[in-house]
Amino acid sequence: MKSLIIILMTSVLVNNYVLSKFLGICPFLGVSKKLNQAAGMGVAVIFVMLLATAVTWPIYTYILAKNGLDYMRTIVFILVIASLVQLVEIILKKYMPALHASLGIYLPLITTNCAVLGVTLNNINDSYNFIESMVNSLGCGLGFLLAMVLFAGVRSRLETANPPEAFKGLPITLVSAAIVALSFFGFSGVVDGLFA
């Protein structure tokens, strides 16, 4: 139990996918202008990460690893995640149109999101078992949501700031993203101390 909590806290704070590993930067910069959009994207990513892990972990363990094909995992995972997201979209459209209307526009974006692929591959690389993988995915998704929401707040402040002409637009956004990432650096080493 303790190790699961450590995995969760580590993936949320220390190994934050956006701010420490720099995965999923595209939605982080693209969809973080408005707080509600950022939160919607974050929730959609949590959902897809959990689902992708639940499917890719058994495929790796019972099909690829058994046949000595573990070097094919990247390609197979891309294939599986892409069709999985499509499947989820079709089912959501049929049975939960309200949820589809709010998450629908983010799902195609997530299909090719490297953060989702990164989570599933890292679960294998860290040789987590199924439960640990799911907890790690949940943590990474929560970390993504946290980063998106925090950065949406920062960007709403940037709207009214008046930076020098050369910094306007994307440059000041990247600079502020770097400073937010720097603040997350402070979490390294904290988690081990929490449960010592």
């Binding site: 495929i59 294939l79 089912i91």
Partner: peptide
């Protein structure tokens, strides 16, 4: 064979889903 069969399986599932869950 393995990668192709996984791909074909995914495609078949998607086709069936598109047929049965179409709105």
């Amino acid at each position: 064979i393995v990668v192709c069969s996984i791909g074909i399986l995914c495609a078949v599932v998607l086709v069936i889903a598109a047929r049965f869950f179409s709105v």
